[in-house]
């Protein structure tokens, strides 16, 4: 069981002209086993929501609460949040030169479990996860994200999702920049993850395309730092047909 509860979340970033508020009171609850899609135009604050929940130091929370199964997420350090069961698949995964993918994955798994994984099963699990995402077995020897193509970076994020198996996954524009084949591979990975009991997914996207492969339970339209409207999958269909126009004019 896992519930991510975001209440009236307000977040600002430092700019040259002083702090600028990006999130203006976001309220959202992802219950046990639910998949929520957050859709919005560029600059609406979708990524800020993802990174604030993960605890990126660039963002300052000025109000509101985030809890995971009742635990205060905002009081936790970045790594404590991950160990509590949160996972962020990033839009722009970071290069870590000289650190191999397999070393990185093993270190992360060890940190999450509090003990090193059993070598034999772990190697098998890693190879299976890479294969599932259509990544070559030699991928494990490459430096983390260094020289990866855009598609490889995203598939690597989802391979991590499957191996690290958090309670709640936040996917920040995982679909952007993917061709249709890669999008299918990545979506299948996410679907395998959420087919498990009680896993929550917060899927952040600009396009409706990925929702054909990952059916959300709820869709939220995100405009100007808050949820402008919530609904079922039908809301995504409306956005597909009409775009964000209606919501943008409503907020002006």
């Amino acid at each position: 069981m896992s519930t991510l509860e975001i209440k009236d979340l307000q977040v600002s970033v430092d700019t040259e002209d002083g702090p600028k508020q990006i999130l203006k009171g976001v309220t959202l609850t992802i219950k046990d086993g639910e998949t929520h899609a957050i859709m919005g135009p560029n600059g609406s604050g979708k990524s800020t929501l993802a990174y604030s929940i993960a605890g990126h130091p660039k963002y300052t929370v000025t109000g509101g609460t985030v809890t995971l199964d009742g635990e205060d997420v905002l009081a936790m350090s970045v790594d404590e949040r991950a160990r509590a069961g949160l996972f962020l698949a990033m839009q722009y995964p970071v290069e870590v030169p000289g650190v191999s993918v397999s070393n990185f994955l093993r270190t992360a798994k060890t940190a999450l479990d509090g003990e090193a994984p059993k070598l034999r099963t772990w190697v098998k699990d890693v190879n299976a996860a890479l294969k599932n995402l259509d990544l070559d077995p030699t991928f494990g020897t490459r430096s983390v994200n260094e020289g990866f193509s855009g598609g490889e970076k995203k598939r690597h994020e989802i391979a991590q999702l499957e191996l690290l198996n958090p309670k709640v996954a936040i996917l920040d524009e995982t679909d952007s920049g993917l061709d249709i084949d890669a999008l299918k591979v990545v979506s299948e990975g996410v679907n395998r993850f959420r087919a498990q009991e009680g896993k929550g997914v917060l899927l952040i996207t600009h396009y409706t395309r990925i929702l054909r492969y990952i059916q959300p339970d709820h869709v939220h339209v995100f405009v100007a730092g808050r949820v402008a409207e919530s609904g079922g999958p039908a809301l995504a269909e409306e956005l597909e047909a009409n775009g964000y126009e209606r919501f943008l004019t409503a907020t002006v």
Binding site: A54, S77, V78, D79, M90, V94, A108, L164
Partner: peptide
């Protein structure tokens, strides 16, 4: 950014 990426996977600072 490197530290954030690694820590977001549960690895301590």
């Amino acid at each position: 950014e490197q530290l954030f990426y690694l820590r977001s996977r549960g690895v301590s600072e």
